[in-house]
Design a protein around this nucleic acid. Structure first.
Lengths: 195, 195
DNA sequence: AAAGTTTTCTACCGTTCAGTAGATAAGTCC
DNA sequence: GGACTTATCTACTGAACGGTAGAAAACTTT
């Protein structure tokens, strides 16, 4: 067993609680007091277990990508581009309309910010860019597989799907109900693949 | 002429300078020191002229809607729904890709935030909702005018265009270049009106 | 010139921010 | 039991936050 006094809280559940605070308030809007109160631990415990605020956010973000945001990765593994987009769009609707945490952490975590949060903003920009690139690669493969037209531009399609996803995230942050975003996904799918 | 010592700065240009700080850093990310330094005035002058931080933001937001965001209103006045959407989409591309202030103030001003900025978040949510409703009303008229199919759902179309606009704003905040967003607008227009 | 009004300035207010020092408690290892 | 290690607690940094007091300066009015 580990040496020294055992930790009295579970780091994974504490990280989940921190994640939900960042999700609701954003990186800047979440104070260390907000976080420690939600996590049920004191500040020294938090700093000892997770490093500083920036470290904590990055760990929460990783957990977000593997947990509530996991539909993105599973969607990419679907057999066709159409199935992939369908899965990602509709699962995203469910994720961003969770009434306890509306919106998407990768979008609203630090869309713009003061100087102190600049590196977090950059990190989120890079993650969004990476997601779009994953979509692009998936669509490139789809063109080769023949489940997208030969003249389809994978980059354009990836950007289009990303924009729809991000638009849905903003709408959800504004309180849009699940049913309306499903209709938005319907519209996007109805014209897939776009001409 | 006005009584008392004359003001040494122009309120409109000072408000423009404040607007650009809020645009780049968001409501929470913009400190009063950021604002006064950009505006070239001291804090007491700012408070005397504009009220508190919240008042200043609201005034800057009004100026945004009438200035850089004015394309929305002019777009609604176009003859057909198609022309309206076309105008709004392409003008929005230009606005959100201004390299000095990427993105859209109504989206990134306070997409999510701490408790202190909650009322500002609500204000921006209401403005986005109002814009979507303006689109919906315009499309309803378009159905009556016959420049949209009789079975078109004005609400769905408005939500779709809003999502595209907001998606573009997020992409622009992430540094997407103008040319790529133009292609995104192209895609949205190519399938207009959506089936 | 004197009174009245408003802006400007420096210096400051109390609060909250992220982050930490130092003592104590709770375990393991020998 | 005693040495060692690590977590927990209270209390506290210094800096930055939004916002203001009070005196001096600049104008108009009489």
């Amino acid at each position: 067993m580990a040496l020294g006094r055992p930790r009295e809280f579970d780091t994974d559940t504490a990280l989940d609680l921190a994640l939900h605070v960042f999700w609701r308030k954003g990186y800047e809007g979440a104070s260390m007091t907000d976080l420690t109160e939600a996590m049920g631990i004191t500040k020294p415990s938090l700093y000892a277990a997770f490093g500083n605020k920036e470290d904590l956010f990055r760990k929460a973000l990783d957990r977000y990508v593997d947990g509530p945001g996991g539909y993105f990765r599973t969607g990419l593994e679907k057999a066709t581009a159409r199935e992939a987009v369908e899965h990602i769009l509709y699962e995203s609707v469910e994720a961003v309309t969770d009434p306890r945490n509306p919106g998407c952490l990768a979008v609203q975590g630090a869309l713009c910010c003061g100087d102190a949060a600049e590196t977090i903003k950059q990190e989120l920009m890079a993650r969004r860019s990476k997601s779009e690139d994953d979509l692009r690669l998936r669509f490139t493969r789809a063109v080769a597989d023949g489940d997208l037209p030969a003249d389809a531009d994978a980059g354009d399609l990836a950007r289009y799907v990303s924009a729809i996803l991000q638009g849905m995230a903003v709408q959800a942050a504004g309180g849009a109900p699940r049913e309306q975003l499903r209709k938005l996904a319907d519209m996007a799918m109805r014209s897939w693949p776009p001409v």
